[in-house]
């Protein structure tokens, strides 16, 4: 592509938006810095996420980390940089660093599973609904309306309560509100896509519906769903924390960032770091996923 559209160049008032023009001559100096800034926009969050994932899943394997549960009660409440306990211990003598890492495993696993279910089930249902239309679409949308009018946290609480607290049930409960959200997005994306001529061309040339769905729709709405899933990772991690915080998520003594914050809250005055550490872990993870999701979105939307 060699042509640079002047009209779109006019619209490009905001230096933060839009990709570099493919045919544009790369100018030296500040321009190159901007290209680098663009790469960092994806690089930094991806790097952070990789770091967090490695630390949580490989860290306890490679390094000799104390067990997250069944700590020695004699070692309770140790301060930071204690011997063998880098971040100290909690009221039960469990190593905080170890609990952070194992808690992260649970949070990340749950968030990934919930979003996977959301994208596969919700994305599939939404795309099908948009593609088929008719009664299927109407009924599905009515059901989603109910879920959307339903206060999501209340629903999650009730489901968690009725099924009991466990990792599996938490995933199930949280899926209740990731599926409708993804379904709506994918449905409206499909409806927008159907307006485009190539879709009509595919349909008119007799391509079977399932093939249209797989070959034309899935690759087109995929990026949108992926960036939503990244943004949603942060939301799920926060809500999973809230469930644990309310005592309905991962059952103690197994660690999760949410129940660590809850445990720490009880002695907030005396040992604030019990709250501070998991809070920081939670925040950095959520910010990383949010950054990645948003930068992916702006990258794709400006393409």
């Amino acid at each position: 592509m060699a042509v640079v559209d002047v009209d779109s160049a006019i619209a490009q008032g905001d230096p933060e938006k839009g990709p570099p023009a493919p045919g544009a001559a790369a100018a030296p100096g500040p321009a190159r810095r901007r290209v680098w800034a663009r790469r960092l926009q994806l690089g930094v969050p991806i790097g952070l996420i990789v770091l967090i994932v490695l630390a949580c899943f490989l860290g306890p394997v490679i390094f000799d980390v104390p067990r997250p549960t069944n700590g020695d009660i004699l070692e309770s409440g140790l301060p930071m940089f204690s011997d063998g306990h880098l971040l100290g211990t909690d009221q039960n003598g469990n190593d905080i660093l170890s609990r952070l890492l194992y808690g992260g495993r649970a949070s990340l696993f749950i968030a990934v599973m919930v979003n996977l279910i959301g994208v596969v089930v919700g994305g599939g249902l939404g795309a099908l609904s948009g593609q088929l239309g008719g009664a299927f679409d109407t009924v599905l949308m009515r059901i989603l309306d109910v879920f959307i009018a339903f206060p999501s946290l209340v629903l999650t609480l009730a489901v968690a309560q009725s099924l009991g607290a466990s990792v599996r049930n938490t995933i199930f409960a949280l899926s209740f509100f990731s599926i409708p959200a993804v379904a709506r997005i994918s449905r409206s994306a499909v409806l927008r896509l159907r307006e485009l001529p190539f879709m009509a061309a595919a349909e008119l040339s007799g391509t079977p519906r399932w093939r249209v769905l797989l070959r034309h729709i899935a690759p087109n709405i995929g990026p949108q769903l992926l960036s939503f899933a990244m943004l949603n990772m942060g939301v799920v991690i926060i809500i999973e924390g809230a469930l644990s915080f309310l005592g309905l998520g991962i059952p103690p003594p197994d660690p999760s960032w949410g129940n660590m914050i809850f445990d720490g809250q009880q002695s907030l005055t005396a040992t604030p770091w019990l709250v501070v550490w998991p809070s920081i872990a939670l925040m950095v993870t959520v910010i990383s996923f949010n950054l990645l999701g948003e930068n992916l979105r702006s990258l794709w939307s400006s393409r």
């Binding site: 640079v4 160049a9 933060e16 570099p20 023009a21 544009a24 001559a25 100018a27 321009a31």
Partner: peptide, 12 residues
Amino acid sequence: MFTRPGGGRVFA
């Protein structure tokens, strides 16, 4: 002349 976000220039 427009300076594009990526550093490219457009001589309009």
